[in-house]
Each structure stands twice: as structure tokens, then as C-alpha cells.
Simulated scan of single mutants.
Amino acid sequence: MAIRNIDVAKDNLTFGKLNDVSYRSFSHMASFYGRFMEPHRHEGYFQLHYIDFGYINLNLDDSVNLTPKVPLLILTPPSAPHSFFTTNETTGHVLTVRESLITPIIEKLYHSNPNIILNKAVFLSFAENSEIKKNIDRFFRIIQSSIENVDTDQDLVLSHLVQSLFSYILCKREFKDSLTVAPMVNGDLTIFQNFIKLIEANYHKQLSVPDYARLLSITDSKLKDMCRRFSSLPPKRMIFERVLLEAKRRLVYSDRSINQIAADLGFTDPSYFARFFVRCVGQTPSQWRKRSKNMQHIYQDIHHITTV
């Protein structure tokens, strides 16, 4: 079973001619898709969940059975799978926004390491009486109002509103403190950003550091130096981290065999994939999958108990 892609435009949940923005209350989305949301992703869209009350049990990217404190923001990029269970009283808001509206903001605000937001799901809990909660509540009241009062400028209004909301969140100290962000440094940023994009496009091909250097038209040593300055990780480690992230995702969220997953990620020898995984994680792929599936079963049992 492949990880399901949910296209909010095809489900008629978007607003505007370009289908750039989907907004619904969390209760509405739960009634549409269910309180037990199966593993899925949104290709081409960032999604922002804002849970302001209740309980959520969350499987996010390669982490399972999270129970973060509410109020809560959950930001998932297009590639990140997620699933969750919520109780009937859980409330909040859900924004699903075309990535072309959000990526430029991330690349500007996190230009030394945009990969930390572009490819990895993150979440942030904060205090009930905090400034960030009060301001996010205001943003969503304005977004709701703009949707309820449809006019010819709706596309423009909505796109600017959601961009402002994402900018506000991504700029907040509380959000940045939840990440490991490399310091901003000037020079060679465009090349480094292109390296990150190349990893995303080619991580499953088992390209070497010299291969990436040739694609970027630079020397191996220059690529290593840029990665040291901008990410504090060597390029080989950056490539491995992306391969490892995808391996974890597929072990958790798909039913493909370990040999098939190894082949999908460019490993011609399944035993080499197993050694790679053990070296990075400390567990075999089958052990990782078993642990994750056990958590999924617990998760489904909770859903069954609460719905009978």
C-alpha cells in the first residue's frame, strides 16, 4: 500500500480560481475525512494544522504516537506523511496552501538552510495565554471572514493572508527555537540551495558527492566547504540523512517489502541497505517497521474503542 495523496482541489475544498488555498475548521475536516485520519500527504501543498482545544495523537513524518500539548501548530511540507486520531471535542483550523506561495517565504527566511522546513514536518506547542496564540487566533478570524464574504478579489486577499500567517509563524522565536537552524552566512547561498534541491530530486539514485559537484559545476572541495559553512554537515551526510528519512517514511507508512523499499531508494543490494539503516538508526529495517506497526495498531485500537 502506497502512502495516500490527498488532493484538496479534487475534493473541492479549495477556494479561488487557481485552487491555491484550502481553509476549513478542524471539525469540518474531521467530519469530511474522519477523526481517525489514515497516513497521507498532500503533493504540491503545505499544510498547517492549528489545534486550539482537545486531544490529538499524531504520527508525523518518521515519528509515531506523539501526543503534543495543545494549543499546537503542525506544519507539514508536501513530501511529509502524517496521520492522527482526535477526540470529538478537538477543535482548530486547517490551511492547505499551494507550495509556490510558501516556498519563497521559507527560502528567504531560512536561506542558510531551507531544507529544515522544506522537507521535514515540524510542530510547536505554546501556552494558552501566549502572544502567539492570540495573534494566530486573529489571523484565522480574518481568514474565515474573507472566505465568508466572497468577492472578485478573493484570490488575492487569501493568498496574501496565508502568506502573512506563514511568515509570522516562521519568524517567531518560539518556532525557530524548536528547530536546529544554521546561522546565516553570506556567499554561495544559491549554489548551496541548488544542492539541497538536487538532493530532493535525486536522493533515490545513489549519486555520490562528486556526482552532485559535477551537476553544480563546482569542485568536490568547494561543495564540502559550502556544506560545512551553511549546514555544519558534510555533503555525504546530508545525502544520507535524506535517504534515511525516506526509508523511515516508507517503512512506517507503506506495506512495500524491505527489499522493494531498498530498490526504490537505489540500493542494488538489500543487505547493504540493511547495514546502512543499522549504522544510522541502531535497528534493522524490520525492527524499525515492527516497532512502528505496533504503535499503529495501538493507535487504531484507541480509535476503535472511542467509536464503539
Rank of each mutant, 00 (worst) to 15 (best):
L18V: 02
D225V: 04
L170R: 05
H93C: 10
A274W: 11
L48D: 09
I147Y: 02
S159E: 15
R279A: 12
L215H: 05
C227F: 07
K69F: 00
N294H: 10
N19F: 00
I3T: 15
G92S: 04
H28G: 07
D11W: 08
K176I: 07
E174V: 09
D153H: 12
R35W: 13
F240H: 12
F195S: 00
R35T: 14
R291P: 00
L156S: 15
L170V: 04
S125V: 01
S130R: 03
R289M: 05
D255E: 14
L216A: 07
H42L: 02
R214F: 07
C171M: 14
I142S: 07
D151R: 10
W288M: 10
F32G: 05
D52I: 01
V8R: 01
N88C: 01
S22F: 07
N129E: 15
H303S: 14
F36W: 10
F273V: 13
F36R: 14
V122Q: 15
S27N: 11
S63K: 14
H111G: 01
H297F: 02
R173E: 14
E241R: 02
H40W: 09
L124G: 02
S145E: 13
I169F: 06
S130P: 09
F139M: 08
A121V: 08
Y299T: 13
D62T: 08
V94C: 09
P210F: 09
F192V: 01
M184C: 03
N259K: 11
Y45T: 00
K134L: 14
F276S: 03
F32Y: 15
L18G: 01
L75A: 00
C280N: 10
S130W: 10
F53R: 09
F84P: 07
N186P: 04
F46R: 04
D62C: 04
R250N: 12
I6T: 09
F240L: 01
I102M: 11
D264S: 14
Q163I: 04
V278C: 06
F166G: 05
S292G: 08
L72K: 04
E89H: 06
T87D: 09
P39D: 12
F230R: 12
I51K: 03
N202C: 05
E174I: 06
I239F: 06
L207N: 12
F126R: 01
I3R: 09
H93V: 09
I51R: 02
Y203N: 04
K10R: 13
P210I: 13
M184H: 10
C171R: 14
G54Q: 12
N115I: 08
F192H: 14
N88K: 15
F46N: 05
L216N: 07
D61F: 00
F46Y: 14
G266L: 03
R275E: 15
S159L: 06
S145L: 12
L60Y: 00
L72H: 06
F195E: 03
G34D: 13
V243P: 01
R141Q: 10
H160T: 10
F32Q: 14
L189Q: 14
F175T: 13
P235V: 04
F273H: 11
V64F: 07
G282F: 08
Y23S: 06
L189K: 11
S27G: 08
N5M: 05
Y253I: 00
I239H: 01
T306F: 08
K69S: 12
A274C: 13
S125R: 00
R249I: 11
R35V: 11
D20G: 02
D151F: 05
